[in-house]
Design a protein around this nucleic acid. Structure first.
Length: 353
DNA sequence: GAAGCACCTGTAGG
DNA sequence: ACCTACAGGTGCT
C-alpha cells in the first residue's frame, strides 16, 4: 500500500477503462461513417473502427455494428445517451424525411441511393463558427488538420487513450490572445489566421453567448453571424444549419452550385456564385425540399463529395501521425498530467470513502 | 450596388 | 519536373 506512487498513477491514467453502453438504431437512420465524414464536423478520428472526438470537456467514443451503436464517454457521464441524442439530433427521424424528399424529387430519389443515414449534427456554435471560417476556399483534409491543430495548440488536454491525446476545443479567450494570429500563420492557416483571431476577439470582448442565436429566426440568425470576420453568406448558412437549428438553411457552395446546374438545370450567367444566384438557388431548394431542405442538401452534398470515406484521420494500427504539441511545451504537459493525476486520486478517495 | 481581384496552402491532374 | 486548377469563400476596392 505504501508503494503506490506517482508512476503507478501515471500508468493508471493512461490505461483508461471505458464504460460502454448500447443503443438500437438503424444504419438507415444514422450512419456514423457518412455523417462524421461528410464535411459537417472535422475532428472525428477513426481508430480500429472506433470513432472518437472531444465534445465540450468530455471525449465521446462510438462504434456501429448492425442495428447497434455502442457509446462511451471519458470522464464517465451517466447522461451520455442524452449527449449522443442531442449531438445527432435523434429526435428528428431522417428515414421519414427521405421518403418525402424521394416522393417530391426524382433527382433526390436517384442520388440518395447508397447515401442513407446522413443527418445533420447539432454542434457547438462556437466551434462550428471557427471550423467553417477555416473551410473557406479549402479542402476537407486541410480543414481537419487545422481544426485538430486548434485543439492541440490552444485547447486543454483531457486524456490520452491508446496513444492519442484528446484536447478540448479552445475557448474564445484562448484564441483572442495577442500572438494567436502569428501562431496560426506558423501552423499554415494562411489568411484565415486573422479571421479566427478577430472573430475570437469579437466573441470574447462582448462575452457573447452564441447559443442565444438559436432562439432567433433564420434571417436574424444569419444577419448576426455574418457580422463576424471571415463569415460570409455561405459560412453563415453552414452555422445556421449545423449548430443553430435552422433546418432549412442551404449553404450554396461550389458543390451545390454544380448540383443545381447539372442535376436541376438551373441556368446562370457566370461561373461565380453572385449574391443574386445564391439566393435564387437557396430558395429553389427550400421550395423543393421544404422545412428540412438543409438536411436534404447534405445528402446531395455527401453523394457529390469525393473524399467521403477517404481514410481521413483513420488509423488501423498504432497511431503515429497524430498532431502532438511541440517538445518545447512538454513541461506544461507534464504539469497538466500531474494535475489530472491529483484529480484522479481525489476522486478515488471520495468514491471509496 | 455589383463586379473584379487578392488571398494562404496543399494536392491531384495534366 | 513544372505548371495549373481547385478545394464546402470572404473582404476590399
Amino acid at each position: 500500500m505504501k508503494s503506490v506512487g506517482r508512476k503507478t498513477d501515471k500508468i493508471r491514467l493512461k490505461m483508461v477503462k471505458l464504460v460502454w453502453e448500447s443503443m438500437k438504431i438503424s444504419p438507415l437512420e444514422l450512419s456514423l461513417a457518412k455523417v462524421l465524414r461528410c464535411g459537417q464536423a472535422f475532428r472525428w478520428k477513426n481508430i480500429n473502427d472506433v470513432w472518437s472526438c472531444s465534445i465540450g470537456s468530455k471525449v465521446l467514443f462510438l462504434r456501429q455494428h448492425g442495428d447497434t451503436i455502442d457509446y462511451a464517454t471519458y470522464p464517465y457521464d451517466s447522461k451520455a445517451l442524452e449527449l449522443v441524442s442531442d449531438y445527432f439530433n435523434l429526435d428528428i427521424k431522417v428515414q421519414e424525411l427521405y421518403t418525402q424528399w424521394s416522393r417530391d424529387d426524382p433527382v433526390f430519389q436517384k442520388t440518395a441511393v447508397g447515401f442513407e443515414g446522413v443527418r445533420m449534427l447539432r454542434q457547438n456554435p462556437w466551434e462550428n463558427l471557427i471550423s467553417f471560417i477555416c473551410s473557406s476556399n479549402n479542402n476537407v483534409k486541410r480543414i481537419s488538420q487545422m481544426c485538430d491543430n486548434l485543439t492541440v495548440h490552444f485547447g486543454e488536454l483531457i486524456m490520452e487513450h491508446e496513444g492519442v491525446e484528446y484536447y478540448t476545443f479552445p475557448t474564445p479567450q484562448a484564441l483572442s490572445k495577442d500572438d494567436v494570429e502569428s501562431k496560426l500563420r506558423d501552423l499554415s492557416f494562411g489568411y484565415r489566421a486573422k479571421y479566427i483571431h478577430k472573430t475570437a476577439q469579437m466573441v470574447a470582448s462582448q462575452n457573447q453567448d452564441l447559443f442565444k442565436i438559436r432562439d432567433l429566426p433564420y434571417e436574424e440568425a444569419h444577419a448576426e453571424l455574418i457580422k463576424f470576420v471571415g463569415v460570409g453568406p455561405k459560412v453563415a448558412d453552414c452555422i445556421c444549419l449545423m449548430s443553430m437549428d435552422k433546418h432549412d438553411a442551404i449553404p450554396v457552395d461550389t458543390h451545390v452550385y454544380q448540383i443545381a446546374k447539372r442535376d436541376y438545370k438551373l441556368s446562370s450567367k457566370g461561373d461565380a456564385v453572385t449574391p443574386k444566384t445564391y439566393e435564387l438557388i437557396r430558395k429553389f431548394f427550400v421550395n423543393k425540399w421544404g422545412p428540412y431542405a438543409g438536411w436534404a442538401q447534405s445528402v446531395m452534398f455527401a453523394a457529390d463529395l469525393k473524399d467521403l470515406e477517404n481514410g481521413l484521420n483513420q488509423t488501423n494500427s498504432s497511431p503515429k501521425k497524430q498532431n502532438k504539441r511541440p517538445k518545447v511545451e512538454v513541461k506544461e504537459e507534464i504539469q497538466l498530467e500531474v494535475n489530472l493525476v491529483r484529480a484522479d486520486r481525489r476522486k478515488r478517495v471520495r468514491t471509496t470513502a
